[in-house]
Amino acid sequence: MSGLIHRQGPQNVAHRLAPVRRAGARPQPAGAPRREPGPSRLAYRLNRMWLRPLYRRLFRLGLPAFLVCMVAGLYLADDTRRANLSGGLTAMVDRIQSRDAFMVKTMQIEGASAAVDKGLRAMLPVTLPASSFDIDLPALRTQIELLDAVEHVDLRIKPGGILSAVVTERQPAVLWRHARGIELMDRTGHRVASVTSRDLRSDLPVIAGEGAGERAAEALALIGAAGPILPRLRGLERMGERRWDLVLDRGQRIMLPADRPLPALEHALSLDRADGLLSRDVIAVDLRDPQRPVLRIGLTAQNRLRRAQGLPELGPDGREIEPEDDAPAAGAAATGKDTGKRGGRPARQG
């Protein structure tokens, strides 16, 4: 149709020259056929596999992690490399730990006696100066507090390289005499030290007997309660590891019950206050049964009583002595009246 337009040129078609082509209009050689746009089956399958969360995680996390592990493992498989690495690490740690800022140069101890001071210095596990990283303060503290003489210690590393130990020593409150020697105890019943002689600490009260040390606090309470008879008190004795005997001079004893000894002692003291019980010839006041106090009378008093009753007197061994001389009747009557009154009273107590 559009070709008709060109026919209006020269009529003789045979004389027409071949059409001049522009260079760009030259027919191109047939190139490669257009590639199909769809993916190949392999590419499609790989793509779908990649869309699975499991594979995706495996490739994104698992593979790099595996590679890192493998490289590190291969590198560390060699002994010298490993040694170099660990040596370098320890050297670095050492270098940092032994810097001047971390060094402890002196030890400063406050509130300790000379012996404890010496002991503490000996207990320090390192020789000063040392790095503060080498001193384990909590362990050292528990170790120090194992010492009997030390009640409490505050350990601190102060600036300037000072290891400060503030020691609270135990204060001995009582002496405990037992079969193996004499020991100083504090008021909680904890051992403080051993002494060789009672005279070294004559200001402290004495307790004795097996198991007395553990009940030192109770003993101290009893001693504190024995106010008026304190000058006469020689000590406390633990009997059978269950109860106390208050030992006074002139061989007198106040035998206290195992439970609630303090009211019993106060009872005895009230008796003493009322009619001077302890200043008489009484060997023991037996308060073991609080319902029924019992007195053990001394030999002189017994003999005076027997004389008043007309009985033969007793010797120091407890046997009757043959009557050689007559006891005066008046004296016996006076003493009988006296003892009758005294002997009857405990029986009525209740």
Partner: peptide
Amino acid sequence: AETERCVRHAIQGAQKQAGVR
């Protein structure tokens, strides 16, 4: 085979946009 390839193309394109298999 040709249809299959086109289907794969369509599926893969849609999957790519969706981000799920």
